[in-house]
Design a protein around this nucleic acid. Structure first.
Length: 586
RNA sequence: GCGCCUGUAGCUCAGCAGGAUAGAGCAACUGCCUUCUAAGCAGUAGGCCGGGAGUUCGAGUCUCUCCAGGCGCGCCA
């Protein structure tokens, strides 16, 4: 269905045209002065300039035409030239009913859905998830759901870091510790020989250890580089061990992402792009883009308009092994071949923006994707501690994602245990949902590209503008529906608007479509958060002012219940898009 | 050095397709649980939107400049 502002824009644009002006001046916005009106049009000012006439006069002429329209309760020209509009209650109720009956509850659908590959998550195998991985997962998941909710086709890919030096480091360290393992023998036979079993704990411990060691121990670093190269070139023993690392690590990752309610269509990794590296090098070579520089093979991507020197992309390192630009480019070839997408979005730390500039330019230059394919890096900011520096645990280490979740979920559990409303059976599950909601909403309500201060106490309080508040609002609605014995999927109807609080709620619900539109255009889930909070807050006022269960006027009561049902449905939709699960009671 | 990003209330942040009185939450202070969950509601107080200049009828929002902070700048990802 059409957005209300869109319908009004057409109406007002028509009025401008009838008055002899141009339609472009008819843009209608949600009023920023809700005390004066619901919608406004400021086109008279620009129109005044062009037609050399006072804005107030023009607004007056347009308003005269608009008054012929019965959808307005009031429509007036206000000095110095605003056009202020307020819709009739009948009209609002009509739109509300449309939303209630719309398959997409008023979320605008795109006409020509594009196919988008969404690359987020990006964890490294053999490396425990820490809070640095949180944002990519949360933001990427929300963007995926948001894009899908507005009709787009999205294919999500976790893009595992499973093929670079980090694997070489782990294998090198394993080899030093267990030199007798069969997989390290030159004559390892993948058919006959088996690999020693690994577990997550070992892997989690070994990577930080090896990484640190490589910085001080030059010989070890050289060994890791050699292992990386040999792995990428198919040494059987290393491949077999790598497969074991992958098996253990992916199982653990799946568990972690599942607990965050994050899931991927594709569990591809850098290693899956390996088979396209040959094609990449051929293409680049064939187009004469590849050149040797300081022992490495590179592609120049600097452009004349650049305000800063942009270094070339390294395709092959001095030792002929691949680097992340290589696999990213090879991955683009793979994605183009498999899905022919219209867009590729990368939800990756904003500090990598130079890297993506290089990769995207190289991809375009080499014709790896059609000219009009959009390649976009959606960078996000760092999660800092209250000291403004990257978040650390008390002892200065990097905080494990699982530890963070546990802390918050435990706090939620304590609160739940004290509640009179929580059912005894699923308190653990309810606590988990509340904890995840708190973390996700806290993250997503910040602007994506900005760094933000992560204050764990703020999350533990479960008060104010939080994910908890949204879940709480829904449980209140659930409670009412239970008391009046009405199912949440009962078809709704609305007889009238009885109170101001109600009108505010209705208007907020109606304007949700605009919020979703804005969110998807800007690829900014924080608009969804803001809108969800608005709905919940306005509902809470309405809830506080009017007692629904005890209402004796049947028509009024039925309308209010209908409002509860619709509010609940819409809030659930917001939460779903944010990747947050609701609870029945808490 | 060059480039990118950020600077809004005591704190954490929205707002940045330019519009009429700059919004939340937390913290502080007042009220409200014998009617639907007080994880709530209502209210008070708190701002030269980093400084300066410009564009505009109109700037927190656009441009320039200065200041402060963060980040990035070839073989890690």
């Amino acid at each position: 269905m059409k957005l209300v502002t869109q319908v009004l824009t057409e109406t007002v644009a028509g009025a401008f045209e009838k008055c002899g002006y141009e339609k472009v001046f008819g843009d209608v916005l949600v009023s920023d002065r809700l005390d004066l009106c619901q919608f406004q049009c400021n086109g008279s000012f620009a129109c005044a300039k062009q037609f050399r006439k006072a804005p107030f006069i023009i607004a007056g002429e347009v308003v005269k035409r608009l008054k012929e329209n019965s959808i307005f309760k009031t429509v007036e020209a206000v000095s110095p030239g605003f056009i202020n509009m307020t819709l009739t209650d009948e009209y609002l109720l009509g739109v509300l009913l449309q939303i209630a009956q719309d398959r997409h509850i008023g979320i605008p659908q795109i006409e020509n859905p594009e196919t988008i590959i969404l690359d987020y998550g990006g964890p490294n195998v053999a490396k425990p998830l820490h809070i640095g991985h949180l944002r990519s997962a949360i933001i990427g998941e929300a963007l995926k759901r948001l894009a899908r909710a507005t009709g787009r086709k999205v294919i999500s890919d976790i893009h595992l870091g499973d093929w670079g030096l980090q694997i070489g480091l782990v294998i090198a360290e394993l080899e030093q510790r267990n030199p007798t393992w069969k997989c390290f023998c030159a004559d390892f036979d993948a058919q006959a020989d088996t690999v020693a079993g690994l577990n997550v704990e070992t892997l989690n411990e070994i990577y930080p250890f090896a990484s640190k060691k490589s910085k001080t121990d030059e010989l070890f670093k050289q060994k890791a580089d050699r292992v990386t190269y040999e792995l990428q070139n198919g040494r059987a023993g290393y491949i077999a061990l790598w497969k074991e690392i992958m098996r253990v690590s992916i199982a653990d990752l799946k568990k972690n992402y599942e607990s965050l309610n994050v899931d991927f269509d594709l569990w591809y990794g850098e290693s899956d792009a390996e088979k396209y590296v040959g094609a990449l090098v051929d293409t680049l070579g064939g187009k004469g883009l590849l050149r040797e520089s300081e022992g490495a093979m590179v592609v120049d991507i600097a452009e004349e308009a650049d305000t800063a020197p942009i270094p070339p992309v390294i395709i092959k390192k001095t030792d002929n092994s691949n680097i992340y630009a290589t696999t990213d480019l090879a991955t683009i070839i793979q994605r183009q071949k498999d899905f022919d997408p219209d867009e590729m979005w990368y939800v990756v730390d904003k500090r990598q923006s130079l890297h993506f500039t290089q990769v995207f330019r190289c991809a375009k230059k080499a014709g790896l994707v059609p000219e009009n394919t959009k390649l976009e890096h959606l960078g996000f900011g760092t999660m800092n501690g209250s000291d403004g520096k990257p978040y650390k645990t008390r002892d200065g280490g990097v905080m494990r994602l699982s530890d963070l979740l546990e802390t918050i979920i435990n706090a939620a559990y304590e609160k739940i245990s004290a509640s009179a409303y929580a059912s005894q059976t699923d308190q653990k599950e309810v606590a988990r949902k509340i904890g995840i909601a708190a973390i996700k909403f806290g993250d997503l309500s910040n602007h994506r590209a900005k760094d933000y201060i992560f204050d764990i106490d703020k999350f533990l309080s479960f008060e104010g503008k939080t994910g908890t508040y949204l879940l709480y609002t829904i449980t209140r609605i659930n409670s009412i529906l239970k008391k009046v014995n009405v199912s949440s999927d009962t078809p709704v109807s609305f007889s009238d608007i009885y109170t101001d609080a109600e009108r505010s709620l209705i208007l907020t619900i109606i304007l949700s479509g605009e919020a979703f539109q804005h969110a998807v255009n800007e690829k900014a889930p924080n608009y969804v958060c803001e809108n969800a909070y608005q709905i919940a807050a306005v509902f809470s006022t309405f809830y506080h002012d009017n007692y629904i269960v005890s209402e004796t006027d049947e028509a009024k009561k039925a309308t209010w219940i209908a409002l509860c049902i619709l509010t609940r449905k819409l809030l659930l939709k917001h939460l779903d898009i944010l990747g947050i699960e609701a609870v029945e009671s808490m």
